[in-house]
Structure formats: C-alpha cells, structure tokens
C-alpha cells in the first residue's frame, strides 16, 4: 500500500443514478485500489451537508427529469457554495448528463419554462422535443485527441459560453447539441459530458487522466501514474476498440449505431 489516498464524493447517488453512471465510481475505486491508492467513497444526498474540503474528487451522474426536480432545491440550499469553492480550488469533477447540466447556468424547457441551476460553469441547456440517443464517439483534447466512446441519451441541448472549452470534437453522434460539433465541457479540473455507458470503464485513459489530475493536485506535479503498478487493460481495450471500430463504420444518422 502506498501512502496515497483520494476521497471521492458521490453526489446524489440515490437520485442521479440512471444509465449505469454508478459504474464510474466502481471504475475509479478499482483502478485506484489496483494501484495501491486508497480510495474512500462518500455518498452525499438530499439533506446532507457538503464540506468540500473533505473530498478530492466529485462525481455527479444523470437522473430522470422527475427526480432532478427533487434535488435542485437541496443543491441550492446545502451544497452550492461548497461546489463552487471546490471548483475554484481546482478539485476534480466528473459530471454526466443531468449532473453536467445542473453545474451550468440554467435549463430552459422547450415550452419556455426556465430553471436556474448552480451557475458553476459558463453553459446553459435548452430542452428539445427530439432525443439525441445512441452510441457515440468524440475526441478528448486533454488526451491529445484520443477517442472517448459511450452512449448518449438526452433531449437537452447544451451550449458553452466563453469561459469554458469543450472536451473535444464529436466524431459520430450528437454531443452537446447536435449542431456545433462539440461534446462536453472542460473548465479548470471539471469535466462534464453526456457520456453514459458508463463513461469511464471503457475509456480507461480518461479515467486514469482524472485520477492523475486529482493526485497531482493533492500531492504535487511530480507524481505520475506511470510510477504505480501497470494494470492489465485487456478487457477495457477490447470494449473500447469494439465500439470505436463499430462507430467508424456507421453513419451518424444510422439508428443502429
């Protein structure tokens, strides 16, 4: 066992738990522990107070619209200030779908109702009547253009402001809004995207980059995952390569993609 440890905060695990997003926690915890990095997971939900200082890494998943309304009030009252402080403090965030949208400024439904969100990221989301759905693939600038694959399923179209950049460029699928060819948002150490599937297990390089970022923030820039035991990623690579190959052969508008 090394002396390294990261505290992982899973926000609203009982509410935002759609489409296997919890698999990201399973993935993070295993990939840390296989390397001897201690990983503590805290589940914080409605009614719990967040103390940002206790955690190094935050995860927020996606939920059903019905359930998302339940937690907006709670997020505003019990967690917003600490989330903003943690982002400012360059803590690592991974936010998927509904969790990604909630970090933005607001959500406007297709019939014009507006819900104010946390405003942690310079982006907003507009509901549409069509669902953007299917396996998809995009590049990740933070991984020198390596591909990320997953399953998107959202009717919200997200538009980024000037203060943040996308994670990368959509190669196949819709991404943020199906219009500007971008997917996700990267701001400081916050990554938000629409990638279910879940996102991390079949994109191990993305997972490791997030772990390394959190380690460096906590223990200094000289630390590198390359100094830890190497993992056998055969299963992960097979799953990743199967989907990149399949998507390279299908058109974006192919319903079977």
């Amino acid at each position: 066992m090394s002396d390294y440890s990261l505290n992982l905060c899973h926000l609203y695990p009982d509410v935002l738990n759609l489409y296997g997003d919890t698999g990201n926690i399973i993935c993070l915890k295993n990939r840390m522990e296989w390397r001897g990095i201690h990983c503590e997971v805290s589940n914080l939900s409605v009614g719990d107070e967040l103390h940002a200082g206790d955690h190094d890494f935050f995860f927020i998943g996606g939920g059903q619209d019905f359930e998302q309304e339940v937690l907006l009030k709670d997020a505003d009252e019990n967690k917003k200030d600490d989330i903003l402080a943690a982002i400012d403090d360059e803590k690592v965030f991974l936010a998927i779908c509904g969790g990604y949208q909630i970090l933005g400024e607001y959500y406007k439904t297709w019939d014009g109702k507006q819900y104010d969100f946390l405003g942690a990221l310079d982006l907003y989301t507009v509901g549409s009547e069509t669902r953007m759905i299917g396996n998809y693939m995009y590049t990740c600038d933070a991984l020198d253009g390596d591909k990320i694959v997953g399953f998107e399923n959202h009717s919200g179209k997200t538009y980024l402001g000037e203060k943040c950049v996308p994670i990368g460029k959509v190669l196949n699928g819709s991404g943020n809004n199906g219009e500007d060819g971008t997917e996700g948002c990267h701001y400081k150490n916050v990554f938000g995207c629409y990638t279910h599937g879940p996102c991390l297990p079949k994109n191990p390089a993305f997972c490791d980059m997030l772990i390394e970022t959190a380690l460096r923030r906590k223990y200094g820039d000289s630390i590198s995952l390359a100094d830890f035991p190497e993992l056998d990623d055969t299963f992960e690579k097979n799953a990743h390569e199967y989907m990149t190959a399949r998507l390279s052969k299908t058109n974006a508008d192919d319903p079977s993609r």
Partner: peptide, 14 residues
C-alpha cells in the same frame, strides 16, 4: 444490443 434488447447496455452496471 439490438433494438429488441435495448440499444443501451449501461444497465449492466446497475
């Protein structure tokens, strides 16, 4: 992951 199976297999993680 054909249509009749459900295109999205994410649920295996749940």
């Amino acid at each position: 992951d054909n249509y009749a199976d459900g295109r999205d297999i994410s649920w295996i993680w749940d």
